[in-house]
Write a protein that binds this DNA or RNA. Sequence first.
DNA 1: TAGATTGTTAATCGATTAACAATC
DNA 2: TAGATTGTTAATCGATTAACAATC
Lengths: 214, 214
Amino acid sequence: MSHMKASLPVIRRLPRYYRYITELKNNGTVRISSSQLAHIMGSTPSQVRQDFNCFGGFGQQGVGYSVDLLHEEIEKLLFPEGKQRAILLGAGTMGITVADFVIKENTGVELVAVFDNDKALIGNKLFGLEILSMDNFVEFCQQEHVDIIIACTTKDVAEQLAPKIIETGVKGIWNYSHFDFTVYDETMIVENVHLRDSLMALSYRVSHKNKPQE
Amino acid sequence: MSHMKASLPVIRRLPRYYRYITELKNNGTVRISSSQLAHIMGSTPSQVRQDFNCFGGFGQQGVGYSVDLLHEEIEKLLFPEGKQRAILLGAGTMGITVADFVIKENTGVELVAVFDNDKALIGNKLFGLEILSMDNFVEFCQQEHVDIIIACTTKDVAEQLAPKIIETGVKGIWNYSHFDFTVYDETMIVENVHLRDSLMALSYRVSHKNKPQE
DNA sequence: TAGATTGTTAATCGATTAACAATC
DNA sequence: TAGATTGTTAATCGATTAACAATC
């Protein structure tokens, strides 16, 4: 039981473990070794064991890991007491898609309010939630408990909102805008989904695939 | 001019450099030092210089970097000769949003066809492109030149399509499905946008923020 | 020439992989 | 008991950071 704090790479692997373990559980697999799991994950047995030991180590020496126990433990880690409450800022194309996703997928996160600047949208319903004026989100966060802000605005709007977001005291941002909240405030937990950067990195790798240099 | 091959972390930073350099160029900034750029990027001067030196080094000793030259060189790296041609597999909520994004954003990638399994969708137009039957995408890729496949299907459909995708000879996959193409085929260049994993990692970090262990 | 700042080599840091003792 | 497989410590690898000579 080494109990060291899980590093970011380990945390990022956790949802993937959860996906595969859930699949194995549904298949009726009861027991799995670090080697088998590593093969499924495309990693190494060492990494699997190191990763699980960050959280206390769920295995049995000489035997392996119980799929059920593993599933239960990882679930406890990823879905802690009660759902996390999230609000959406920006009900544009991306915002609507992300809201749809959060509502339909089992992620342990609940969408509790939607805000937009567009007067034409305010008052409309989105998946049963009334779209509220962006002017009111700080107040909302301070009155209702909110854990996560989903930022689906343009870069400029995100930049304007940044100080207000800090003001809310919310701990995490799921960031779809091109504004770098991390650079703005170091203490905030930010998970970036930069589609543009992701696609450009792919494009670079594809176009430079067989070139030896650069 | 060390000319070592750029590692994945360096490639992932390239689009962010491009974003900031473009902004500086538009602001009329003509010259910038690695320290100033590091401050903007939230990194270190050493990293900035190391990164640029992977591509040949665009600076001038004692002077700094010309914003114009930097912009031009990074643009050459990210937008090589002509646009990359991409097809979309799966015209659901996410697929439509991603298609909209690719068409509107300046990413050096062009959407040339859309495929879906749903007979109700086939034949409809999506952003001026006719939605084609999924049965025909392999043939399409072999006849037209296609660089990137954007996978916006469910996990199960992605898994079924995997061997066909390999068959097309396409070099890169922009993957929104929960199927791990990397585990299936090591040689394929895959850029994953796993919303679920991303949100769960954020949720984990938020809920464990002030806890010392685990 | 002196000051500034790069390019590049060396040192550090952290994550991954390997090794092995513990133990089922 | 022997074989298997974990938990954990040690070694390796790669990326980041620091240092400094080159040079504008």
